[in-house]
């Protein structure tokens, strides 16, 4: 197999990249300065060697603890549970949350053979137990899907007996959207979750 075929095959394994796009990327690298390809290669190597899961929350990290867990100004009594590490970025970008995270590594999906044992549930429970009451609240921020909801229900059943308050992200109308274009199910959720002003 030629180097071109090999790299095309590797690119094509990435999400959202088909064989044609993969070949286009390879051609782009071949036509550009050699230093660009070397820089990309180095970055990929460093990613593979330096990135690992945070020992506490499972987020991507270059050190034993991720930036959030290592930050003493974050509120460690508030844990936000997310499905995947990239969900941490979504919440961090909002700039409003001052607590810490826990990454489950997926959500319950019996169809895919994913049960509680396949998720990072035991480390979460151990984290709450070991805090000796310091953890006041666990916010479950799994996706607003049937699978995400079932995962939230399971976590609530496991966490509540340990003491902390368990909450779930609210659901409703996206900020900046026109009510006219919001689908009926979202409106129904927003009505059910309305709050007093």
């Amino acid at each position: 197999m030629s180097v071109i075929d090999q790299l095309t095959g590797e690119f094509a394994r990435l999400p959202g990249i088909g064989p044609k796009t993969a070949l286009r990327l390879v051609h782009h690298l071949m036509k550009g300065p050699k230093d660009d390809a070397r820089r990309l290669s180095r970055a990929v190597m460093e990613l593979a060697e330096r990135i690992r899961p945070c020992a506490r929350c499972g987020n991507f990290s270059e050190h034993e603890l991720c930036e959030v867990c290592a930050n003493p100004r974050r509120d460690s009594g508030l844990i936000c549970v997310v499905e995947e590490a990239f969900d941490v970025g979504a919440i961090e970008r909002a700039g409003q949350y001052r607590g810490v995270f826990h990454v489950l590594g997926g959500r319950l999906s019996p169809l895919d053979g994913i049960g509680p044992e396949e998720l990072s549930v035991a480390p979460l429970l151990e984290r709450v137990r070991a805090s000796g009451g310091e953890v006041r609240e666990v916010i479950i921020a799994t996706n607003a899907s049937v699978e995400g909801e079932a995962t939230a229900v399971y976590l609530e059943q496991q966490i509540r007996p340990l003491g902390p308050k368990v909450s779930r992200l609210a659901r409703g109308i996206p900020v900046g959207s026109d009510l006219e274009y919001v689908d009926g199910t979202t409106i129904a959720e927003a009505l059910a979750g309305r709050r007093e002003m």
Partner: peptide, 9 residues
């Protein structure tokens, strides 16, 4: 169906 593990299963 997501509000109960048994229903979901």
């Amino acid at each position: 169906l997501g509000a109960s593990l048994l229903r979901f299963a």
